[in-house]
Design a protein around this nucleic acid. Structure first.
Lengths: 69, 69
DNA sequence: TTAAATAGTGCATCATATTGCACTTTACTA
DNA sequence: TAGTAAAGTGCAATATGATGCACTATTTAA
């Protein structure tokens, strides 16, 4: 799960929920500028920032031993 | 998966592999200081930093829609 | 097409993560 | 229980993420 994949996952989920970047920006209190960078894989967000987005979009972050599906 | 849980998961895995923080520091090219902060949940690392650790310890990061186990 | 809405960029500034160093604390073990 | 290794802390300096603004590009709808 690299920065590109994370950005893609976020964008895909956001669009599925029919939310604009600007709305997500207000919900998460992350700047529109940073959201764009994250979605396009150009940013390198901190866990705190990522968790705000994850919470808003109903996503889950998991850190496990390498294995399973 | 918050910062505390991430730190705990990393520490648990590092100990399972019998690696010292100093060794992991050299392998990942992350300062010992930062590693300590991350393991103790006091840091707020970027995805890049986290991925270095994940790779070194054979862990996996997943971002999925909230559901499943 | 054109117009409007949404998304993306360059740049400067501010906030904060990262680091090294000196030192303290905690865990091991001879 | 003294000595050593490993882990953790406070602080200052540096690197870099986060943000706002003005602007451009792309997408969508009339």
């Amino acid at each position: 799960m690299n920065l590109i994949e994370i950005g893609q996952t976020i964008r895909k989920r956001r669009k599925f929920l029919s939310i604009m970047q600007k709305d997500l920006s207000e919900i998460t209190e992350i700047s529109l500028r940073s959201l764009i960078d994250i979605e396009t894989g150009k940013g390198n967000p901190t866990i705190k920032q990522l968790n705000k987005i994850i919470d808003a979009l109903g996503l889950t972050l998991k850190l496990t031993v390498e294995k399973d599906a």
